[in-house]
Amino acid sequence: MKVIKITAVWCSACLIMNKRWKEIEKDYDVETISYDLDFDEDEVKEYEVGEKLPVFIFLDGDKEIGRLIGEKSLEEIKKYIEELN
């Protein structure tokens, strides 16, 4: 599964989620493409980031099948991914 991860260096929730996502990458077969809100403006533009960060966009091919927004626990992330699968 392809996942677009949009974070920002100034966002504390993103820092926490980056670490949790590394754990997820160990347990699940995910291909992560990371973008920074401030430094990858062109790429981020097409995903319409709302008012909260971080944003994880789950793709099946090029089609968005789910979106996880904000700070979540490891269990919540795992549960969400399993529901998508």
């Binding site: 920002a8 100034w10 966002c11 504390s12 929730a13 993103c14 809100l37 401030d38 980031v49 709302g50 008012e51 909260k52 960060l53 971080p54 927004i69 904000g70 700070e71 979540k72």
Partner: peptide, 17 residues
């Protein structure tokens, strides 16, 4: 609601950055 960082106003953010 979702916990997470509020996205700071773009203009203000860019100036400070």
């Amino acid at each position: 609601q979702d916990d997470g960082c509020d996205v700071v106003d773009e203009k203000k953010r860019k100036t400070i950055i």
